[in-house]
């Protein structure tokens, strides 16, 4: 995120700034989107707005959505709103935020269970509609496994008496999860992703 850097508390060296200036100079010519973002950045009063998770407001009537399917929105904005989008989806389909924000102290397990079932059904459906969840290790949990030299450390967390090198002989405690084919809905430009659920008024 090179253009995301000129935020006041990041102290860049003179050479780094020179490099950035040249990078920006040329990119302004071939990247229209970048140019218009740069302009907003220069004229906007709140330079850190994007860090709050909200998307920069688009000029009225301009829609980036006219570019192409499947992902017409800006990748930087996309990263910032992606997590919020997931939260919004889980609230919409499974009422996750409603559940988490409620104080459960006074309720019986039956009440909590009924709500959990609703949330489970909705969140699970959402999860499965947006990706494929599968375990990382196919062995049954609590079975003995061996990790040989060259295993991917990013996929396995070692616990207990961890020696200094492979092979490792141990017991699989958690098979892990991984998501593939993950896809998010495309948000309309200018859409405020911090609104996880709009208020509802019945007429």
């Amino acid at each position: 995120m090179s253009y995301g850097c000129p935020v006041s508390d990041l102290r860049l060296s003179w050479f780094a700034r020179l490099k950035l200036a040249f990078g920006c100079f040329f990119r302004v010519f071939y990247d229209v989107e970048f140019a218009s973002r740069l302009r907003r950045l220069g004229s906007g009063p709140h330079l850190r707005e994007a860090d709050d998770g909200s998307t920069p407001a688009p000029e009225k009537g301009v829609s980036v959505a006219s570019v192409s399917v499947p992902s017409p929105i800006d990748s930087a904005v996309f990263e910032l709103t992606g997590g919020l989008t997931v939260l919004g989806l889980l609230q919409r389909e499974g009422r996750l935020v409603d559940f988490l924000e409620q104080d459960l102290t006074a309720f019986s397990d039956a009440d909590v269970g009924a709500a959990a079932r609703l949330m489970h059904e909705g969140c699970r459906k959402t999860l499965h509609e947006h990706g494929t969840i599968s375990p990382i290790r196919s062995e049954p949990e609590d079975s003995a496994i061996t990790l040989v030299e060259g295993y991917e450390p990013g996929l396995v967390k070692l616990t207990g008496k961890v020696g200094s090198k492979a092979p490792y002989h141990g017991t699989l405690r958690h098979a892990g999860w991984r998501i593939s084919n993950f896809r998010l809905p495309t948000a309309r430009t200018g859409h405020d992703a911090t609104v996880l659920a709009p208020a509802e008024v019945e007429l």
Partner: peptide
């Protein structure tokens, strides 16, 4: 299979129709 109609407001737990 249980069929639950949730409460409509932002309070999910309690008051559901089951």
């Amino acid at each position: 299979v249980p069929v639950v109609v949730p409460r409509r407001g932002s309070k999910l737990v309690g008051g559901a129709i089951r």
